[in-house]
């Protein structure tokens, strides 16, 4: 009953939002060329799909997103595990980490372009950097706070090598913390996709820039909503995966 009411209210809010949005350009409160009313969006979407541009842009962006996410998350997890398990490695890297960590992912754009050109690899690089730090810190923290008592259980049963400790205890025990980091990274990576592509790497971001330079604001909105939908899709799938992986929790 309460849930139904909450859903109802959310729907009311959405409809109200769309009405205000529709009304503002129609009542000439804003210039329709600057803010297209939502009723024009479905037609714009269909046109964009029909021309084939939409699918190409989405596939390009998705491939940057997925590869960047995998590279960044893979490296973040690997180094986070090593730093979390071995104090000496953590100490060794402490100052390097302090130096590099505050640099925002976008500050790497000049180097990305110099190193990789305006190519998909540049976008992947920028996405991976943003993802890396999030996943690295989440993993390191999760690994470091693994219950010592459970590690002792493994030792008492003869699992004494670091690799056995990792496989039997550290990784499963750190999974909840790592997943929290990954979910944050999932959102961050979308921002990086757009940012990287705005500099010209083909994909949703560059398509939006093209559209805006032609003042086709309806196309811009189409891609904004496309991103929202894609993010929602990934996040929902991730939450389902997370629930399954953590089904052992009360």
């Amino acid at each position: 009953m309460i849930r139904l009411r909450a859903t109802g209210l959310a729907l009311v809010g959405l409809v109200a939002f769309l009405i205000v949005w529709e009304a503002a350009p129609r009542l000439d409160l804003v210039n329709p060329a600057f803010l297209p009313p939502p009723s024009t969006i479905p037609a714009a979407l269909l046109k964009e799909i029909a021309s084939g541009a939409w699918l190409v842009a989405v596939i390009e962006s998705l491939s940057h997103y997925v590869i960047g996410l995998c590279v960044g998350a893979g490296a973040g997890m690997a180094l986070g595990i090593v730093a979390g398990m071995f104090r000496s490695f953590e100490n060794l890297t402490a100052w390097v980490v302090r130096l590099l960590r505050p640099i925002p992912g976008l500050a790497w754009v000049p180097f990305a372009i110099i190193w990789f050109g305006v190519e998909p690899r540049a976008a992947v690089f920028i996405i991976a950097i943003g993802v890396f730090w999030i996943v690295f810190f989440a993993t390191q923290g999760a690994v470091r706070s693994v219950d010592r008592d459970l590690i002792e259980v493994a030792q008492a049963f003869g699992f004494r090598s670091p690799l056995a400790r990792l496989a039997k205890i550290v990784l499963p025990a750190a999974t909840p913390g790592i997943l929290v980091g990954l979910r944050t990274a999932l959102g961050q990576a979308w921002m990086a996709v757009v940012a990287a592509e705005i500099f010209g790497v083909p994909g949703i971001g560059s398509r939006m820039m093209q559209a805006s330079s032609l003042l086709s604001t309806d196309i811009v909105v189409v891609y904004m909503l496309t991103m929202a939908a894609l993010y929602g899709l990934f996040d929902t799938a991730f939450v389902a995966l997370q629930g399954w992986l953590l089904r052992w929790r009360p």
Binding site: D149, F157, I169, P172, W248
Partner: peptide, 16 residues
């Protein structure tokens, strides 16, 4: 495994 230990607090692995 010549010996095995039962801990005071069972220490089961919660993910298994």
């Amino acid at each position: 495994t010549p010996m095995a230990l039962v801990f005071q607090d069972a220490r089961l692995l919660p993910w298994r």
